[in-house]
Amino acid sequence: MHWFESQLLALNKLADKYVVSQKKPAANIVKSSADMRESRGQFIEAVQALVDNVSKVKGIAACTAYHDGLILAHSKQALNIDAFGAAVQESLHAAQQSAEMLNLGDIEQIVIVGTTNKVAMLSVGPLMLCIACPKHINLASALRQDI
């Protein structure tokens, strides 16, 4: 498994861990609050680390993460993050409608390819991770490169 896949897997595990911490019956409110905060912190830290790492990959233009279409983490070179967020939200909405009609299940990935650039959106827990690059870049092999 290459670094991106394993980091994404770790991120999904952290997202699950956070969801589990939220669902735990809270006999001790203070402890469960601290536990939730810690697992949420780990998850967010991992999101930022992944965004930073992806943006180091040669050929990747920008990497961002959104929650409900609002920016949560971004790489240094990301531009128009608000417009990007709005597009993510709209695409997700359209994809979810289609997924329901076509019985696809929960959305995992959305890819929009233009004549110049393309954007891949990956669902990670409650967030959407977005990776932008020129059209000619093969994202899968680019993300396999060592950073």
Binding site: Q22, I29, S32, S33, M36, R37, R40, I44, A65, Y66, H67, D68, G69, L70, I71, L72, A73, H74, G85, P126
Partner: peptide, 16 residues
């Protein structure tokens, strides 16, 4: 501040 980051944290913090 990243609005989504702050809003996410607020939304998750409120139930607790």
């Amino acid at each position: 501040a990243l609005l989504g980051r702050v809003r996410f944290e607020l939304k998750e913090t409120i139930p607790v």
